[in-house]
Amino acid sequence: MTLLDIAIPSAPGRITWNREAIGFVVGFLLLALLPLVFGDSYSRHVLIMIFIYAVVASNWDLSLGYGGVFNFGHLALFGIGVYVYSLLAKMAGIDPWIALFASGVIATLAAVLVTIPILRLKGIYIILVTFGFAQLVMQVIISQSDLTGGTQGLVRVPGLYLFDHNMIRDGKLAYFYIALALLVASTLFLRLFVRSRAGASIVALRDNEEYAISRGVSLVRQRMVTLAASAFFTGIAGAFYAAYQRNASIDVFGMSLATIILSMVLLGGTSTIYGAIIASFVLTVFSEAMADFGAWRPMITALLIIVIMLVYPTGLVGMIRAAWTLVAERIKRRA
């Protein structure tokens, strides 16, 4: 069964494909116009980082939100992308675009490998094993310092290229559009997946494992599919990050990045994909706006998250839905 073969043509109670497609195209067109508004390379840098975070967070929403699999090694998949790309492009001298693609593939394989030890586990034990997996990947990278630069990381990692366009003196325009393309491709893939029968089956497993199995769903296969599907674009995002920053550092395995991305998944509202993307914008822009507050910044951000989650337990998406209903009612009353 391929992904498209099993896509559900129309599903009662869900937004129609047509409507979603319109929203999707309009939304991403607006994003594509942003460089017209933001001419400076600093703003563009922030937007590029938002796109990378959005890819990583929305893919985490697939395994965590839809699949209910507490994969706390998700950022390790990102880290694998960073290092696979850096090693292939810098040490092996492979074409950056091929290295980028290979990073996605290797991250996917790594995700399939982690699935094996967690198949018979539930909840907190999955957190433990996946967290251990992230630590293991990091330790391996540190120990192979001849290749990976150990705790120093790697510098002068080759960047991406587009024909003979100058990637450095274009005010980050090329990287902006590559990052956006990455987010578009990833989001398209995720939405198609969650609206497919395979997507419904991973929600079924999340909601009631035994019941899903009794209807023929294979826990082993669908768990693997879940983690593998969440890994590909995460790995590519890691590779893109390395190419964009021109370096690789083990900081990507640290708690602080994982915490930021996890806040995006939760603040956005799980099991929506779009929520994580919206939250990547909100949190990053908010954090940039609060730059003057120095040490207060993380505390203010944390407070904001807590308040939003208390008022809207389904996150930003819940907030937007509530606002939408309110507006729709006003319009109706007036008409």
Partner: peptide, 20 residues
């Protein structure tokens, strides 16, 4: 027992898709 996060239709679709 039901898959609470899925619609009625999707619940049945799980059986129809994975049962055989």
């Amino acid at each position: 027992t039901s898959f609470d996060g899925l619609t009625v239709f999707e619940n049945a679709l799980i059986g129809a898709s994975y049962g055989k």
